[in-house]
Design a protein around this nucleic acid. Sequence first.
DNA 1: TTATCATTGTGTAAGATTAACACAATAAAA
DNA 2: TTTTATTGTGTTAATCTTACACAATGATAA
Lengths: 256, 256
Amino acid sequence: MTKDPYSLSPEEFYERGDSYFLPHISIDCVIFGFHDNQLKVLLLEWKDSLRWSLPGGFILKDEDIDQAATTILLKRTGLEKIHLQQFHTFGDPNRDRKKHGINPPKGSNPKSWLMDRFVTIGYWALVEHSKVTPTPDSFSRSCSWREISEVPELILDHNLIIEKALESLRLQLNDFPVGFNLLPAKFTMPELQSLYETILDEKLDRRNFQKKMLSLGILTRLNERKQGGAHKAPFFYKFDKKKYQRALKQGLSFGI
Amino acid sequence: MTKDPYSLSPEEFYERGDSYFLPHISIDCVIFGFHDNQLKVLLLEWKDSLRWSLPGGFILKDEDIDQAATTILLKRTGLEKIHLQQFHTFGDPNRDRKKHGINPPKGSNPKSWLMDRFVTIGYWALVEHSKVTPTPDSFSRSCSWREISEVPELILDHNLIIEKALESLRLQLNDFPVGFNLLPAKFTMPELQSLYETILDEKLDRRNFQKKMLSLGILTRLNERKQGGAHKAPFFYKFDKKKYQRALKQGLSFGI
DNA sequence: TTATCATTGTGTAAGATTAACACAATAAAA
DNA sequence: TTTTATTGTGTTAATCTTACACAATGATAA
């Protein structure tokens, strides 16, 4: 009972994880990144190599659920201080590994707490792709980015969880400029527009988009242009947190 | 184990409710009603008569969480086929009756599963005040409406849960005409406006409000006026579900 | 070296939506 | 019969959104 619960082997975890973690409750994280003009999610490939899943985990008996989600994000990406948005709790009674034909590793307890029905709490996070170090957990052999439109079949209802997360993200995008979290500190207007277009899955007018974004008063244009493209070099911008705080107080509309 | 879990006495429930229900997980419902131009919530008064709480309950081991919430709503109000909106899951590790000085009934097991830490899933519902038959559960001596601004101190974090529910309701109100669920089938424009003003907690222009509502194309004006008021008699309207379905397809904005 | 081309930066006008306000009609009470 | 507060129905001005025009730029092709 005094051992660090995160250093348990998979077998120990199956056998007696429930002495550390709440039974029947899990957390799954949809971690969004943006790279090469594509929206991506972080996925785990299981050691049996046939299954894919979302990064997830469990809640220590005396741990806050947001904290548990933060720990999952940290362990899979190396990132701290990232906003995690709880968006839905999934409680289909068939969320049960047994019912989905998932067996415990050979030699471990087939009556494990992990084989029970689980209610899972969904969180999403927006992270800067380049800052992430994808790190598998002890059940997985790899952790990697997958383009949102090319996500394979995942275990349980994880595909549905991604759908719901994306829906929630789109709604949030209208109320807060969350998209900026996906970009590096310096970005160009075409990059920002491409991000919005990808998340919302619709084309936007370049000129109106720029007007709207600048009118929010939360961007600072740098005296620097992005070189290397085949055409006119666009300016770099940065998201200005101080201006953002000021703008929030005036009750801005971030809808596109 | 074969007994109906909902017919257990409070003592039996404390003692062995966990052979029917998932441990550590509960559901709490914020049931909104509208009466006398006031927004109200349904509360339970405990048998010890010192505490108030939200209507809540637990999830059968093989039951869907939405279904569990539906059952709670039915048992407290007598209403079926009401939309329940899941809005947030509350997972503070101090959500624990012991830590809040709540004791089990005399004679029942002090180590009951019910005294453990619980993660609770919050749902809200909008119901027609006049159709509700407030019904206490076996732990409560009364079930009654309370005006939203006069809610007493509730157990655990139930006051916070109401706050979050109201926040979620306000956001939804901009995306869907949910408010109609709070009114009887026939209502006047001033009544509808008063409802919106109460939920949003702001005054609205009478003429612009009417224009906006009618422009949605989801209301039918009846050839009947509400008599009895001290002044000019306003028309009755009804919410037209067919028109609403048609309007949805065209992607309306319900924002006020 | 110069012309070409796709892209960026900035602006303007029409259309739609929202906000502010005016006045006649009406039902009950004075 | 008059008064009063409220309802029904506009109109106008202000704001926001949408659609589109054109010059400037930086790499590439001629």
